[in-house]
Design a protein around this nucleic acid. Structure first.
Length: 185
DNA sequence: CGTGTTTGACCAGCGC
DNA sequence: GCGCTGGTCAAACACG
């Protein structure tokens, strides 16, 4: 199994503005994603300014997921993967970062991968599958199997070719991952 | 037999 | 108010 490192960029923006309030570039290994890192980023959004200053390099992207309240995200053509933090408002963003509102925390990302469900170190229980409008591929619903943990995950393939996999996490784990990444996959 | 998955039914929210 | 759509439930089923 080859480990494909992907450089990806996170853009953060409230729905009220087309300009991201933060960008963060990071490397991901598609088979050893450390989602704890993703969920904690960024620490200080106000200090992040960004690579998004040139709007000509960025394409508005609004079809990732029908999230209530809307969000802005940008696609960087040169990258093969993109990570989107989806936050309804600035207020929501601040609340989320205070981690007292962990249930509202939502992160979605799209990765070009043959793997539909990646091993993220947590154990998931599948509880539903649904055919989604405008997508020939079904959406899969997972819940963290750890008792008391309310984190949910949605996984769907994008488009007819299904090259990209869109994964959406909702909530934050109240426990550590059940596996380490040292053994490789 | 225990655990995880599948799948149809049901419910809630939203737009028309 | 009604229909559509997404999200969840739970019983049945499959597999180790």
């Amino acid at each position: 199994m080859s480990s494909s490192n992907i450089t990806t960029t996170i853009f953060l923006a409230p729905s009220s503005t087309p300009n991201p309030i933060c960008t963060h570039t990071m490397e991901l290994n598609s088979h050893q994603l450390d989602f704890e890192d993703l969920l904690l980023l960024p620490d200080q959004p106000q200090t992040c300014t960004g690579t998004a200053s040139s709007s000509s390099d960025l394409k508005p992207y609004t079809t990732l997921s029908p999230v209530n309240g809307g969000f802005w995200a940008w696609q960087v053509p040169s990258n093969s993967a993109r990570v989107d933090h989806m936050l309804p408002t600035n207020e929501g963003y601040e609340k989320t970062m205070e981690s007292e509102d962990a249930e509202k925390f939502k992160i979605a990302f799209r990765i070009k991968s043959g793997l539909e469900v990646m091993d993220d170190g947590y154990k998931w229980k599948k509880y539903g599958k649904k055919k989604i409008k405008n997508n020939p591929n079904p959406r899969h619903y997972y819940r963290c199997s750890r008792e008391g943990c309310k984190v949910k995950k949605r996984v769907e393939r994008e488009g007819e070719d299904g090259v990209f996999v869109i994964t959406t996490y909702e909530g934050k784990h109240n426990h550590e991952s059940t596996a380490t990444f040292t053994s490789g996959v």
